[in-house]
Amino acid sequence: MDFLYIKALHIIFVVTWFAGLFYIVRLFIYQTEAETKLEPAKSILQTQYKLMSKRLWYIITWPSAILASIFAFWMLYQNPSYLQEPWMLVKLAFVLALYFYHGFCQDIYNKLQKDIVKYSAFKLRVFNEISTIILFAIVFLVTIKSAINWIWGVIGIILFGILMMLGIKLYKRIREKKSWEKAESEILEEE
């Protein structure tokens, strides 16, 4: 098969892999937040999120990870000189980090399927940003093809990550304030 076709298939499955990783953690957040709902809403939501997670995880995310890897190994087999490039070695380190992230998601998935909630919605929101940072690092490395210049990209990613964390905290405060104001207005209405 022509190298460019293999590369295109690799990129397609990398995109769907990341899409699955981004969305699975959102489903974890929703499932965790459903824990605070009253019955029957809690049971209905939990059942639906478990089903959605299972389909996403085993029909899209895992197959995409495997196919992205197969096409990556195929490209490296056709062009082994890439392994001598420093930027490629750094990229492969980030890909390894992505596999650890994927494995951690698998652990969270397994626990939530058994109704074991270990992490708060806030911690999951922060955790969700790790895959974004890895994506930025890999794209910068592949585009710039420099083992040194990627450092500036990663510094930018870390700053971007810090801004995202601050945004998450601000969003949490706004939600808490609205919840507090709603509860306060309900109490005043009862009086």
Rank of each mutant, 00 (worst) to 15 (best):
L124G: 04
I70G: 11
L51P: 00
T16H: 03
I6C: 08
I134Q: 11
A68Q: 10
L9M: 14
F71Q: 09
I148G: 03
F160G: 08
I130Q: 00
S64T: 09
L67I: 14
S43V: 02
M165H: 14
L67A: 13
L163V: 01
I155G: 02
R55Q: 12
P63I: 13
H102I: 01
T36Q: 06
H102A: 10
I134G: 08
Q31C: 03
E35C: 11
A93P: 06
Y77E: 04
L98W: 10
I24N: 09
V139G: 10
C105N: 15
P40I: 01
A137E: 00
N79K: 10
E191P: 00
R125A: 12
F122L: 15
K114D: 01
Q106A: 13
Y101W: 09
R55T: 15
Y49H: 03
L166D: 13
H10S: 07
I24K: 06
L124A: 03
E186Q: 05
S43W: 00
F104Y: 15
L124M: 13
I66C: 06
F22S: 05
V95C: 06
M165D: 08
I174A: 02
K37F: 03
W17I: 05
L92C: 04
Q113T: 04
H102R: 04
N79M: 01
D115H: 03
V117R: 12
A19W: 12
L38G: 06
Y82D: 02
M165Y: 15
I133K: 03
Y119E: 11
S120C: 10
L21Y: 10
I66N: 08
S179K: 14
W57H: 14
I24T: 11
L124R: 10
L92Y: 08
V95N: 05
I116E: 11
M164T: 14
T143D: 03
S81T: 03
K118D: 14
K118G: 10
L4M: 13
Q46K: 09
W74C: 05
M164W: 09
L38N: 07
L124S: 06
E190S: 04
E176Y: 10
R173S: 14
Y99G: 08
Y99I: 15
A41V: 08
S69K: 09
Q31K: 11
V25N: 06
F127S: 04
G153M: 02
A183I: 10
I187L: 02
L83Q: 04
W62L: 15
I151E: 00
S120W: 09
E176N: 09
A121D: 11
L163P: 05
L166C: 07
T132F: 05
I59N: 13
V95Y: 02
I151M: 00
K145M: 00
E186P: 01
S69Y: 15
K42T: 11
D2C: 03
